[in-house]
Write a protein that binds this DNA or RNA. Sequence first.
DNA 1: GACTGCTATATCGATTCGATATAGTTGGAA
DNA 2: TTCCAACTATATCGAATCGATATAGCAGTC
Lengths: 172, 172
Amino acid sequence: MLDFAILGLLMERPRHGYELRRALAELGFWKVSFGSLYPAIRRLEKREAIEATKMSGRRKAYQVTEGGQEVFDLLLQSDPDANETDRAFQVRLAFLRHLPPDRRIQVMDRRRRGLSTQLKTAREILVAARSATKNKDRYRIALMEHAMHSTEADIAWLDGLVAAERGVASTV
Amino acid sequence: MLDFAILGLLMERPRHGYELRRALAELGFWKVSFGSLYPAIRRLEKREAIEATKMSGRRKAYQVTEGGQEVFDLLLQSDPDANETDRAFQVRLAFLRHLPPDRRIQVMDRRRRGLSTQLKTAREILVAARSATKNKDRYRIALMEHAMHSTEADIAWLDGLVAAERGVASTV
DNA sequence: GACTGCTATATCGATTCGATATAGTTGGAA
DNA sequence: TTCCAACTATATCGAATCGATATAGCAGTC
């Protein structure tokens, strides 16, 4: 997924490593460590998906090669697996516009199903925790409840996104 | 943090590895992989913080030693660093009851400050993204907005927890 | 008694993290 | 002008973590 994110960002325009890190963080992904970033860049270079151009000083700007375009498409088209990470879904969403509308809805729908399952499990656990142990820790209950509410909010948000996508599709 | 979580769970009662994994997931933490769990158990055994007792079959129940209690206290008392992970904070919260009330509020307050900073940054980036590039991708904007709202919800939730803690403190 | 599925422990290679090393660049005070 | 402090940027290291897989015991069932 890191490789996918890097490729996607470089497809917009060439960037150097440090800038990639900032861009990843600004998309709300996560502050990837340099110990992940540079090995990922090396991987992509080795696959000849990206190539470096020297800039002033030590800087190197990386850009996507023709082969890299194909690698990106491959990753983009790949089926999201049922229980993929929050992070993986975020990255997928950031480049979702590259997919046709019907595929977009498919991706969001699969995510929705995953979240629903999670929610159901969480609810069962919470009920069990509340009843079984009469005096289960207040902070833990709060933790579980908050996790549940967050998941509910995520689902509602997804529904909004899907509705918007359908709305655009029907008017076009 | 994994070591801390394991110790905390084992302090309640002895469990075997598989059960630890389930317990971690049920607290809403995360489904730790066995490739993390068993090395963590080995680490704790080597530090003589926990010890194994054989059960039926291959099962081994782990329990906290006297030294382990001290290790747990040490981790519990350790200052949360400014930008600790969501996960790290969750674990901390799950065992927050072991701290005196004033320390609890301190921990939550630090977390709140961290989230506020995050929120401020996120807001600036969002404003920049909205104005600068007139037609920035819809999904990315949605992604950023949702991240912002989630953080806001987290802060509100934290405030509630702190208020509850103060409420209890004042009535006692 | 063989088979299927579940529980449980364990390990492997690849990836990621957090910390740190190193070097270029900028700006400001002495 | 020179020095130094702060920031940008690339890179690497060891430890922790992940995801996948191997293995084995145990329960039910046909």
